[in-house]
């Protein structure tokens, strides 16, 4: 290899003849680096950790409620009815003497199930549609976007009501309804991202390097476009919880004595004057869960920049 001569032409270039770094610099994967960097960034956000802890609590309540409370959510204890919050009953008791905190914990199950299912449907369906739309463009894009327009005209709650009218309540149908309500958001976001990345210089460079579209899709477009969709998924998890609880508030949730959050609030409504903790505390719990998801979503968005 000829020694480059810089002296007369570009005096600002550093000399490169002497190799001080050894020939065997180990080559490391980028994936590990990215993950460890993201994790360390997230650790520096105390709000994020708090929100994450709360959501994990909610998920635990959904999966294994017995770990979190020793009361029976269904057993009626008439002597204990309508007690205000105390050290024994953290959220107080309802008109049948049941511990409200326990009812809230057990109520997590159905809401979380429905919400997770709904977001999964919306995420998978919407991202696929958005991918096709953004990637292929043209007629396919036009058709898919018209489909999305139609879906936008039917909001989650209304669609869920329609389904409940037709076939009654069920976690699966309701989840599908809510999922379809959320789907347009995912489709549009994915479409916008795919269209953005597709026109970036490094995609063109990969094409000129001989890469086929399949390779480019998997290695360049999807990884760079999916950040926004993941952020939306955490956000919409909260939205799905809100819609599900709205549905059960209206009386279209699981049959009593099931302790869904919306049902708890609806039942407690009669006691708004006499025992305000009955409707208000479960609602606050829902608000906190959704707020935590909102915060997680925003932190993820900041970190991905």
């Amino acid at each position: 290899m000829t020694t480059p001569d810089f002296t007369h032409f570009s005096p600002l270039a550093p000399a490169y003849d002497d190799r001080t770094d050894s020939d065997d610099v180990p080559i490391r994967s980028a994936r590990l680096r990215r993950w460890s960097e993201t994790l360390s960034l997230l650790r520096g956000h105390p709000g994020f950790l708090l929100a994450l802890a709360f959501i994990l609590f909610v998920l635990l309540a959904a999966a294994m409620p017995t770990l979190l409370t020793r009361f029976d959510p269904y057993a009626t204890v008439p002597l204990e009815k309508l007690r205000a919050p105390s050290l024994l009953h953290w959220f107080g008791t309802d008109e049948l003497g049941r511990d409200l905190y326990t009812r809230v914990v057990y109520g997590a199950g159905l809401s979380v199930q429905a919400a997770l299912l709904a977001v999964s449907i919306a995420f998978i369906g919407g991202s696929t549609l958005g991918l096709f739309s953004g990637f292929f463009g043209g007629r396919i894009d036009a058709v898919i976007m018209r489909l999305i327009d139609v879906m936008l005209a039917l909001p989650s709650l209304l669609l869920a009501l329609v389904i409940v009218t037709a076939i009654g309540f069920g976690t699966l149908p309701v989840a599908i309804a809510v999922g379809f309500g959320l789907l347009p958001g995912f489709a549009r976001t994915m479409r916008a991202e795919v269209m953005r990345v597709k026109t970036l210089a490094y995609v063109e460079a990969a094409r000129l390097g001989g890469a086929g579209w399949g390779r480019i899709l998997v290695n360049h477009i999807l990884p760079n476009a999916s950040g926004a969709v993941v952020v939306l998924a955490t956000l919409d998890f909260g939205v799905a919880i809100l819609v599900a609880s709205g549905l059960s508030f209206l009386g279209f949730g699981a049959a009593p004595p099931a302790a869904e959050w919306g049902t708890l609030i609806a039942n407690g409504r009669k006691f708004l004057i006499t025992a305000p903790w009955l409707p208000l505390l479960p609602g606050m719990f829902v608000a906190l869960a959704v707020f935590a998801l909102n915060h997680i979503s925003r932190t993820l968005e900041e970190v991905s920049k």
């Binding site: 909260g238 809100l242 609880s245 709205g246 508030f249 919306g262 609030i265 409504r269 708004l272 004057i273 305000p276 409707p279 208000l280 609602g283 606050m284 829902v286 608000a287 906190l288 959704v290 707020f291 909102n294 915060h295 925003r298």
Partner: peptide
């Protein structure tokens, strides 16, 4: 605003009734 987005709208209604009505 994030708080405004997180509270169920029917719960806000109950809260407002409790405060401003009752």
């Amino acid at each position: 605003p994030a708080l405004g987005l997180s509270v169920p709208v029917f719960w806000t209604g109950l809260l407002l009734i409790q405060i401003f009505s009752f």
